[in-house]
Structure formats: C-alpha cells, structure tokens
C-alpha cells in the first residue's frame, strides 16, 4: 500500500497564475482524483483481503506452531522451509502436481483447439454447441469430481461396464487413479481453454485462409502455417491461465482420491499440514512455496515465452 492518492495542492499553487494551463491541469487533477476515487475501493479491498493473509502466512511460516499445542510455539526461522525442501514427499508431490499439470494442459490444448475449430466453423447447432460447452465450465468443480468419481467407481460406475473392465478398481493404483483425476480435470476445464482459443481464432482474417487455399495448401498446412502462427498470443495466454490453475488443483483430488495411492498434490500437502495436522507454521510454509512456484510459472511464461498479457485484455494494437 505504498501508493496512495497523490497530493495535488502544491502543484495547484505553483500553477495558479497561468490560466490556460491551469484549466488543463485542473482537469487532469480532477481526472486523477476521480480515477482513484473509482479505482480506490476495489484496489483497497483487493489488497486488504489478500495482503493480510499473505503477510501473515509469511510470518507464521517461520514458527513451529501446532494449533492444539499453543504453548509449544517456537520461532524457527526458515526451519520449516528446510524441512519441506529436504523431504522426499514434497518432491514427489511436486512431481505429481507437475504431471497432472502437463498432462491436463496439453490434452486440453489439443482438445480445446478442436473444440474451438468446430465452434468457429459449425454453421448449424451453434447455440446448442456453445450452451453445452458452457455447462462443464460453469459446473461446480466438486460436483464434477463426484460425477467422475462415481462414474469410475467399481461399485456405482458405468465406466467399467462400457469398457468391459469388470471389477477394475480405478482408485486402487497410482496411475489409474491419476488418470481418473486427469479425465475429470480435462472435462471440466477444456471448455475454458477452447473459448480463449476461439477468441484467437476469430482474429485471423478470413482472407489469409482464402489466400492459403488458393495457393493449394492442404487443411493441415493451413492449420500449421496460417492458423497456429496467428494464434500464438491466444494460445500462450490460454496455456498460462490453465497452467496456473492446474498447478493449484485441489478440489478434484480431494473428492476423488482423498490423496491416497500417492495422488496428493501440493495444494493437498498444504491442506494436510494446516487443516488436518493443524501444524499452522509448516502448512503456511508449504503455501508460501506453492505461491512462489505459481509466480515462477507466471514469470516464466511472460519472460521466456513472451506471453503478452495485454493481448488478453483486448488491447489489439
């Protein structure tokens, strides 16, 4: 909160003599004040509701503090971070989280691109298509997780029946359980990805494609040479948003496997330390590490892949 509404009066006094410039400056000043009056409340609320928890998490992460043992609260500096970063479990869950992220986001990219193409091209069923696609987007993640957990269940589900898998226990092994989790995640979030891609697709001028067609390019060549290069910005933004989201996956795993069979993710690790074990310090440290990782991913996208976020803003210059 270092930025507050800048004080205007000194300027006003200095420029009081010059009538024409005063009017302009006065207008600018009014605009500036109005700007902060309008944006201030939102800014203040955003900073207040997250600023405190973030700082508090940083502070708590330096304590050995168990909620049920308040007397045993000790300052241990970076001790919790050391514990976490030297623990195999953290790295395994980092691996699981990364795996889920990479698998779901890449499948979603391909699937989402297909969906976007169909949505862009189909002349019939347009409304039905867009309405249907929004259902997974809008549905509660927990509901989607239950639906898929029951679908894959060997007691209730239809999946085994359809694929003739008999009594196969999807949640009995790491790989099959992760597969089930990924399916649920992909189903729920591909529509979001596809809509962001659709935005990019819609920006490609039709004459580019026509020109390519006239040149005798095949459908695949048109996709590769015209569509994809022109959609690069949209693709990067979609990838960034989904990667950040996927890396924080929690609800789906919580409902579908409760973390068993080594399917725990980093958000789950934070949840377990904080909520189940009430090791508030350790849990806060996990949260901080998770936050740092998420920020790193964002920075990587922006710096390394040159993802232009303003593109997302509709600032097409």
């Amino acid at each position: 909160m270092s930025t507050t509404i800048p004080a205007a009066p000194p300027q006003k006094v200095a420029e009081a003599g010059k009538t024409t410039r005063f009017r302009l400056t006065d207008r600018a000043r009014k605009e500036r004040n109005l700007g902060w009056m309008l944006a201030g409340p939102a800014f203040f609320v955003m900073v207040a509701v997250t600023g405190y928890p973030i700082l508090n998490a940083l502070w708590l992460s330096m304590f050995d503090y168990r909620l049920t043992d308040p007397a045993g609260r000790d300052f241990i500096g970076l001790g919790n971070y050391l514990t976490i970063l030297t623990d195999g479990l953290f790295w395994r869950q980092f691996g699981v989280t990364s795996l889920i992220t990479v698998v779901t986001v890449s499948v979603e990219l391909v699937l989402g691109f297909g969906l976007a193409m169909v949505m862009h091209r189909a002349l019939y069923l347009r409304t039905a298509l867009r309405t249907a696609i929004l259902v997974p987007y809008g549905i509660i993640t927990v509901v989607s997780a239950y639906a898929w957990a029951y679908a894959f269940s060997n007691t209730y589900g239809f999946v085994n029946g359809i694929f003739g898998l008999g009594e196969f226990d999807w949640f009995g092994g790491t790989w099959s359980a992760l597969a089930a989790v990924c399916v649920a995640e992909i189903w729920k979030t591909t529509p979001f990805m596809s809509l962001l891609l659709l935005a990019g697709l819609a920006q490609i001028p039709d004459d580019y494609l026509e020109a390519a067609k006239v040149d005798g390019a095949t459908a695949w060549q048109r996709v590769k040479r015209v569509i994809l290069p022109n959609m690069k910005a949209a693709i990067m933004v979609a990838l960034l948003f989904r990667t950040l989201d996927a890396f924080r996956v929690f609800d789906t795993v919580f409902i579908m496997t409760a973390g068993s069979q080594n399917t725990e993710t980093l958000s789950f690790l934070a949840y377990r330390q904080t909520i189940s074990r009430v090791m508030v310090g350790l849990g806060s440290a996990v949260s901080v590490i998770l936050a740092i990782l998420v920020v790193l991913i964002a920075v990587m996208f922006v710096k390394v892949f040159k993802t232009d976020l303003s593109q997302q803003r509709g600032d097409r210059k």
Binding site: N154, T155, E167, F168, D169, F171, G172, S260, Q261
Partner: peptide
C-alpha cells in the same frame, strides 16, 4: 476382494 486397497466398511460388507 476386488478393490482391496480402497475398501472401507461398506465395501467389505458388499
């Protein structure tokens, strides 16, 4: 029984 590592009380009964 099938699904042993995910069987709770009700699964056992089933």
């Amino acid at each position: 029984p099938a699904g042993f590592s995910t069987a709770g009380e009700e699964d056992s009964r089933a």
